[in-house]
Measured scan of single mutants.
Amino acid sequence: SGEEFIAMYTYESSEQGDLTFQQGDVILVTKKDGDWWTGTVGDKAGVFPSNYVRLKD
């Protein structure tokens, strides 16, 4: 389980282990570690910068 966040911006990365997503995607955040959080979008999982998302209303 985790908290749902909304992507405010598209995040694209070629780094292994990074979670890429489109603006407006719902991200289920499973771990918060400083500026880099872990989460899932659909069947993808990985880390992403926390300043790209906001808490879902």
Rank of each mutant, 00 (worst) to 15 (best):
E15G: 10
V29L: 00
V26N: 06
Y52M: 09
G46D: 00
D57L: 11
S1I: 15
E4G: 01
L55Y: 02
E15T: 13
G17D: 07
T38D: 03
S50W: 00
D18Y: 14
V53Y: 02
D33T: 11
V41F: 14
L19S: 01
T10H: 10
G39Y: 01
T38H: 05
P49E: 00
Y52H: 05
F21E: 01
G46N: 00
V41I: 14
T10E: 09
L19M: 04
G34E: 04
F21P: 04
G24V: 00
E12P: 06
G42E: 08
K31T: 08
V29N: 05
D25I: 00
F48D: 03
T30K: 06
K31A: 12
G24M: 00
K31I: 05
G46M: 00
K31V: 08
S13P: 08
M8R: 12
K31P: 11
A45Y: 14
R54A: 11
A45C: 13
T10N: 14
W37A: 03
D33A: 11
E12F: 08
L19N: 03
Q23C: 12
G24K: 00
G39E: 00
G2R: 07
T38I: 02
K56W: 08
K32L: 03
W36F: 08
M8W: 04
D35T: 14
D43M: 11
K32C: 11
G24F: 08
K32G: 01
A7T: 01
K56D: 10
V53S: 03
S1F: 13
Q22S: 13
N51E: 10
D33H: 09
S50D: 03
G17S: 11
T20V: 09
T40C: 12
G34N: 12
E4T: 04
I27C: 02
G46W: 00
M8I: 06
S14Q: 15
R54G: 08
G42C: 06
S13M: 01
G42L: 08
G34P: 07
I6M: 06
V29K: 03
S50E: 01
I6Q: 10
T30Y: 05
D25Q: 14
W37I: 01
K32A: 02
Q23E: 14
L28F: 11
M8Y: 02
K56A: 07
D43A: 12
G34M: 02
V26H: 11
Q23L: 06
T38K: 05
Y11D: 02
D43S: 14
S14C: 12
L19K: 01
D43G: 09
L28E: 14
P49L: 02
S13K: 05
E4Q: 12
T40Y: 14
D57T: 15
E12G: 08
W36P: 03
D33Y: 13
F48H: 02
D43H: 14
W36C: 06
G39N: 00
E3M: 10
R54N: 09
K44Y: 13
A7P: 00
F5G: 10
G46V: 01
E12Y: 08
T20E: 12
F5T: 04
L19H: 01
E3I: 13
K32R: 07
G17A: 09
G39H: 00
I27R: 01
L19R: 01
R54T: 10
G17N: 12
G42K: 04
S50A: 15
I6V: 13
Y52T: 03
F21G: 03
R54M: 10
D57F: 01
T38W: 11
G17M: 07
D18G: 14
S14E: 12
A7H: 01
S50F: 05
Y52S: 08
Y11L: 09
K56L: 08
Q23T: 14
E4I: 11
W37N: 02
E12S: 13
D25P: 00
V26L: 13
E12A: 09
R54E: 14
D57P: 10
N51Q: 06
G46P: 00
